[in-house]
């Protein structure tokens, strides 16, 4: 598989603060990667490096190009929505469409108008007059009308209500994503995007602490709610995390045979959010 992003020892320092501590990874074509980490973990720094918005140390290739040197040409094949509401507030909806059509060789006006036709966005309104949800819908319509290979979304649905968020990811998966595209997305609403992700990357303190496909994660991590009196014995299997709610203790295990776990209770898949909490707090323990 072709690598869309290749990082080797990718680092970034702001003064003495090392936001990114020499991370290495490869993101192949046709994946949807969720980048998950607490605020200040280095997610945005990593994405900014990939998008050519900042300079960095180490090696980084995006679609075979060096993003810091080649941002303009890279943007022919890479799209991004960094943060909500970055569209120019003083422009009208149709003026933004005209602009993108004028500067982007891979933009399809027809596709964009079709997406917008499904929304209630009035084409002659100024962006500052639209609701936050509409601005996001417009930005997504613009981005999905560009035939790019890599789409980077950094908290694209922050502050939007649940219906907009659901609609956003449904459109992304239903109308846009295919095997020739890669999507990298960060969000705090991990549960909501879990079902669309193919891979998860956990970032903590400027380091990639976990990067695996969701299928592998489902196999590797199991959680078991302990049947009465069995919690003590389960400690022998080195659970990475334990949580007690209403007198019931739930343990999370890394790479333990399912048959062994069944002795303590029914093993279940660990949700991405729970897994993140387990790994992050586990690392601190």
């Amino acid at each position: 598989m072709t690598a869309v992003v290749e990082a080797k020892g990718l680092g970034k320092s702001y003064g003495s603060f090392r936001a990114l501590k020499g991370v290495s990874f490869e993101i192949p074509l046709g994946r949807i990667v969720g980048v998950i980490g607490v605020n200040g973990a280095g997610k945005t720094t990593m994405l900014n490096a990939i998008l050519g918005l900042i300079r960095y140390d180490g090696e980084l290739k995006v679609l075979g190009r060096d993003p810091a040197a080649d941002r303009a040409s890279l943007m022919n094949d890479v799209c991004f929505i960094s943060d909500v509401a970055t569209l120019p507030r003083w422009m009208r909806v149709n003026e933004v469409i005209d602009y993108v059509e004028g500067v982007h060789p891979k933009f399809s006006r027809a596709t964009c108008l079709e997406y917008l036709g499904r929304t209630k966005i009035p084409p002659t309104k100024k962006i500052k007059e639209l609701s936050k949800g509409m601005v996001t819908q417009l930005h997504l319509a613009l981005v999905m009308s560009i035939d790019a290979q890599l789409l980077v979304l950094d908290e694209p649905t922050l502050g939007l209500d649940i219906l907009f968020r659901k609609g956003f990811y449904a459109a992304l998966l239903g109308d846009y994503f295919d095997n020739n595209r890669t999507i990298i997305v960060t969000t705090h609403q991990v549960e909501e995007i879990e079902h669309i992700l193919t891979d998860a990357m956990f970032i903590n303190d400027g380091e990639v602490v976990l990067y695996e496909s969701l299928d592998d994660l489902a196999e590797r991590f199991q959680q078991v709610t302990m049947e009465a009196g069995k919690a003590e014995a389960a400690q022998a299997l080195n659970p990475i995390y334990s949580e007690a709610t209403m007198g019931l203790e739930t343990l999370v295990f890394d790479n333990i045979d399912q048959a062994k776990l069944q002795a303590f209770g029914q093993p279940r898949r660990v949700g991405l959010a729970d897994l993140f909490v387990a790994i992050m707090t586990g690392a601190d323990q």
């Binding site: 303009a72 890279l74 943007m75 799209c79 960094s82 970055t86 120019p88 993108v100 500067v103 982007h104």
Partner: peptide
């Protein structure tokens, strides 16, 4: 552009900063 953060949108287009 920086104040309203629209520079992030302009930079998502294939236009160099020089241009």
């Amino acid at each position: 552009d920086r104040r309203e953060r629209s520079y992030l949108f302009w930079k998502s287009m294939p236009i160099s900063d020089t241009k």
